[in-house]
């Protein structure tokens, strides 16, 4: 078990909790998906895990260690990376500078940083050929690739992904999900929050359904293949 969310209650204002007593486990090396209707608290959950919001009750463990109360900029140091919604490259900086900033927390260890850069270039030859270009000049899909590659610079254990297909051309959506599956195959633990229920169901191993800020259903992907339409109908 890599990431455990235990009895978490959280929200923007103390009197108005958005999440109530939510329990989620993301297993080592697997792809866990969180789906739910609008307003179910999916984004609030990611914000709470990554330290933008502090849970008022409950605890969050990563590798058995509590990460409750840590700030967002301390998370990568704990081995948790976060692919945020929408485009997040530094557009006026080169591809290589973007990748180097992915290694910000290991910047004093130039050797490890250079090795990580080499590895990324081996995995993503496209980025190597465009390493002197400013990131803003890349296509939408290439920028997503850069964003994903940038997260792997420090070899985190867990990657949180928020709505991977938002803001992308429909043509590129499949490519992005392929990249995410590749990350899983490399051994990363992945927690993905997604509106595109069917896309998400294609790639994940385990599903949690959130509804009105609470756990609604959960189970391995196979349990949902036939019942997903019924689950969605419940939302409407």
């Amino acid at each position: 078990m890599t990431l455990e969310i235990e009895h978490v209650t959280s929200g923007y204002i103390k009197e108005v909790p958005i999440l109530m007593d939510v329990n989620i486990v993301a297993n080592q090396g697997s792809l866990t998906g969180i789906i739910g209707p609008n307003g179910a608290g999916k984004s609030t959950l990611l914000k709470t895990i990554y330290g933008y919001l502090r849970p008022s009750q409950g605890d969050i463990f990563h590798d058995g260690k509590s990460i409750r109360g840590l700030k967002p900029d301390q998370m990568l140091g704990q081995g948790i990376a976060h692919l945020i919604q929408g485009h997040s490259v530094f557009p006026a900086m080169t591809v290589e500078e973007n990748l180097e900033l992915g290694g910000w927390i290991i910047k004093h260890d130039r050797k490890t940083l250079d090795r990580a850069l080499d590895e990324v270039y081996q995995h993503y030859p496209l980025l190597k050929s465009k390493r002197r270009m400013v990131a803003g000049a890349l296509s939408g899909g290439e920028q997503r690739t850069l964003e994903i590659a940038r997260l792997t610079m420090t070899h985190p254990r867990t990657i949180l992904i928020d709505e991977p297909s938002v803001g992308l051309m429909p043509k590129l959506v499949d490519t992005v999900y392929e990249e995410i599956v590749k990350l899983k195959e490399l051994g990363y633990t992945i927690l993905i929050v997604d509106q595109k229920v069917h896309k998400c169901l294609d790639v994940v191993d385990y599903i949690y359904v959130l509804r009105l800020g609470q756990n609604s259903h959960h189970g391995p992907k196979e349990d949902f293949v036939n019942t997903i339409e019924d689950v969605i109908k419940e939302w409407i």
Partner: peptide, 24 residues
């Protein structure tokens, strides 16, 4: 310098900079 790059990164996308461990 790496501090200078972090400042530029923060001015271009502060939320992304924060997720990379930069103390914004």
């Amino acid at each position: 310098t790496s501090l200078g790059k972090a400042i530029r990164a923060t001015s271009q996308h502060s939320e992304a900079a924060q997720t990379l461990g930069i103390d914004v």
